[in-house]
Nucleic acid binder design. Structure first.
Lengths: 359, 359
DNA sequence: TTGTAAGCGTTATCAG
DNA sequence: CTGATAACGCTTACAA
């Protein structure tokens, strides 16, 4: 492996000069053009590659970002990650990605591993509780900047990027109402998930404003701690068992919505013919589902961008004069209309039925 | 940040001694038990963390693995990645993950970035051509060991883990035949994808052995270069337009199969009532689809394990005495039966129809 | 405009 | 059994 020393020898200059030239440093500005191009040429000819180890040792910065995903096989995390990766790569950083595999117990351990590697900053992905805010706060206090993406929480030290869940939920119902639905069932998300709470307040506030009646018999709570297709399936079965009329379901998220669709199909009900279904997130699945799923899109990749941008800014800011309050950024969701929602009228040519309509 | 020097001072020993103790090195074996525990205790009390930069500089190893995914938002890649990550973590390695975003042009660049970071080994994920074998070969020659996961290819230098596509395809048809299907349509994968070729030879060999007639009118080729839901949709529409009888579709992979199901549904045909559909891969989507998808499972996480294991072994082997031939490992696929396949008989109580059956 | 030299924190090789 | 000491390759004051 060719070192800076060899380049220095071949060019006749000192290693200091070579280093400055190769880094386009301040001091290199006023060196003869000749010197600079000569050194650069020789370096290229020799195939010189700076040694990252030495560089990091000197500068005490790794130019690596530690990422902790709640579940990297979840497209939700993967898409945010993509945003992060492509953003930081352009700035000369690289991501070290670790995965809790939905096991909250791993979280501390992963932080330790990453801090040991001296990452310049930390990002967590995924809204689950398995990424504990207080744990993170304790660890990074005064060490490295950290950003949480995909989770609304009011930390005093950690910056946060999350979708505006409340307006997302409102978008969803507004869409259903506009289609003519009045009997809307709700599958609420896991109790102790901030996102679930926020979405539900969105629903409630909109219902109040529009005088939409919320039938408590049409509200059901996911029993699982996490959101799965299976959970949506069971919740919908339970809903059907109540034998109340509804023409639409608003699910906590896309996975839940898919489960709901399956349960409706299994019960011989068509989507959207007999019942509309809307999800939340717009994970890749949504666009391929059968039927394709109307949903509220979180701009996942963009959230990755923003998170990475904030983190890199924090990294550049000297610790001393960082704002004492963290950045809490919320991004706007968007309605995506696909096949799974339609008017309760007669969208597919079949007679209007609704679910358990008397007709 | 507390260094080894401070530990040395506090304990009264030299840095050398401390280093040896803390690494449980050979020489530390025959040091007094007292010394060792004392040093360790003080180190812990001081909160000493070894500096990875210095360590790497010294040892010239990063204990980091470079991973290049064709598309990390594709659950196929993500699941393999999970296998890799959890395997190497247990051995003290960490993954630096980069993503071509399906852009083959990025591949070289990503390799360069990772090599610059002095990763100890390289793994590529995903079967696409956007991961070019020859490019990889050229780059890593004599530099770092490399393993490709998810792509069958006969490289002379790069080790490979891939599913046995041929027997996978055979499993699929055997299942359909066992169910009673004789008129089977095939959606072949992208022409220049090894996996597609292999799967097709599996189909052909089994057809020959079982005297199953392959109707060329029931064979269609994906037009897209990559596999998407959309591609499966269009292929199936084209198939339907031919107005030939078939009672089952064997799709190139899960995404294609989902597209096929959508097209069938759109045409008013039920799955599996009117037509069975089987996929390949068993990505997460398959288990949640409507209907849930019968498919051939690739043991993705396990492939990640195996790939990582081979890579770490290569890393430990001194370059001089590495086997000249790379490891080419093939893993067994498994049939996963879900809802999308059933006998052409009368599985759902509806009259038997088949697609374009005269009845 | 360029060179010298002092580290950065570890680890390995000696010598004792 | 333990201690000095010399690298590892690079950056950056400071000197010239």
């Amino acid at each position: 492996m060719v070192t800076i020393k060899e380049v220095a020898q071949k060019t006749g200059f000192s290693t200091a000069t070579v280093s400055m030239v190769l880094n386009n440093s301040r001091l290199a500005r006023n060196m003869s053009q000749e010197t600079r191009s000569h050194i650069k040429r020789i370096a290229r000819e020799l195939g010189y590659t700076p040694n990252h180890f030495a560089r990091s040792l000197r500068s005490m910065r790794s130019r690596a970002i530690g990422v902790i995903a709640r579940d990297i096989t979840d497209p939700y995390c993967a898409q945010i990650f993509r945003g992060i990766e492509s953003f930081i790569r352009r700035r000369g950083y690289v991501p070290i990605l670790t995965d809790t595999q939905c096991d909250g117990g791993q979280f501390e351990h992963l932080i330790e591993i990453l801090l040991e590697r001296r990452v310049d900053g930390l990002i967590t992905l995924g809204s689950s509780l398995s990424l504990d805010t207080t744990v993170l706060e304790g660890f990074v206090r005064g060490r490295v900047p950290a950003v949480m993406i995909g989770r609304e929480c009011n930390s005093q030290t950690i910056s946060t990027i999350a979708v505006d869940n409340e307006s997302g939920a409102r978008l969803g119902i507004e869409h259903l109402i506009a289609l003519g639905h009045r009997n809307i069932a709700f599958i609420k998300g896991p109790k102790d998930l901030t996102d679930a709470t926020r979405r539900w307040s969105g629903v409630c506030s909109l219902a109040q404003e529009t005088r939409l009646a919320l039938d408590r018999n049409l509200i059901i709570q996911l029993s699982e701690p996490a959101s799965t297709c299976e959970g949506g399936y069971r919740a919908t079965q339970a809903l059907l068992a109540r034998k109340r009329l509804f023409t639409a379901i608003m699910a906590f998220d896309d996975m839940t919505a898919c489960g709901a669709i399956r349960a409706l199909s299994a019960a011989g009900l068509g989507v959207p013919g007999d019942c509309s279904v809307i999800g939340f997130d717009d994970v890749a699945l949504a666009a391929s589902y059968n039927p394709t799923l109307s949903t509220i899109r979180q701009p996942l990749e963009k959230m990755g961008f923003i998170g990475a941008e904030i983190l890199l800014k924090l990294i550049k800011t000297p610790l001393a004069k960082q704002a004492s309050r963290p950045v809490l950024r919320s991004v706007k969701p968007a309605l995506v209309i696909r096949e799974s929602t339609a008017s309760p009228g007669n969208p597919t040519g079949k007679p209007r039925r609704g679910v358990f309509d008397k007709g």
